[in-house]
Amino acid sequence: MRARGFRKVLVNDLVATLATAFFFWPIIYIILMSFKPYADIVTNPLGISSLTLRNYIEIFTAPGYSFTKYIINSLIISTGSTLLSLVISMPAAYSLVRFKTGNGNISFYILSLRLLPPIIFAVPLYIIYSSLGLVDTHLGLILLYATFNMPLTVFVLMSFIEEMPIELEEAALVDGASRLTIFKDIVIPLSLPGVIATSILNFMASWNEFLFALIFTMENAQTVTVGASLYITAWQIKWGHIAAAISVSIIPTVIFIAFMQRYIVRGLTMGALKT
């Protein structure tokens, strides 16, 4: 009986490890590929004969490549949209939880923005953006991301606010504090861990966005996702450069997701499920 149990654990261990490796290997493979010299990539897809940093050096320094610019753009746009989205969403989330403002209609509308295909809004917004001069600007993408990440922000913040004890707020009300004071002095400080988790989820969503970045930028405001995919459509495809560009671009979000274990499910399901 004991021996059989032991063997079962071993089989489970083996299958679990293989399954993990299966889902994880594409990422490892691309990172390894980014360190391969050009000749190796073309002639030897399976092995590595030597390692080089050339791909990385070239995407950052070679003339005609503007990868540094893409990264700076992505940082500006992701940070800006995260801050904007939080400032707008935090009071709304509090109002929606405590007062059920709009009787579910407002939350339904906000949720629908997460579920509808974003291309629906891209078409009319492009004409509006053209006439306002917002195409290919940082501000243009910041506004777009703040809008379309608002469902994530509002719903995840709501899930955190729902967990907060209501007694503190009631006590403050009895003591004569106004709702705005309560919001400022009790709700915001208490929900700080939730706000930080939400910010990270928000930053990741903006960093990874592709469709709006593709449509609404030409050159100035181009982000890493669009920038990296431009290499592949360029005349002479340099696989090593693309692999290096991908590796650099996925570092921030991959690190974040490792630290966000506790909040992944909440983020993925927009607060519908908590762990």
Binding site: Y29, W207, F210, S249, I250, T253, V254, I264
Partner: peptide, 17 residues
């Protein structure tokens, strides 16, 4: 924690990979 890593990769970059 290794298994959830693909969820952090931008779908566009995952496609490029």
């Amino acid at each position: 924690s290794l298994l959830v890593v693909p969820l952090g990769v931008a779908p566009a970059l995952y496609g490029l990979m």
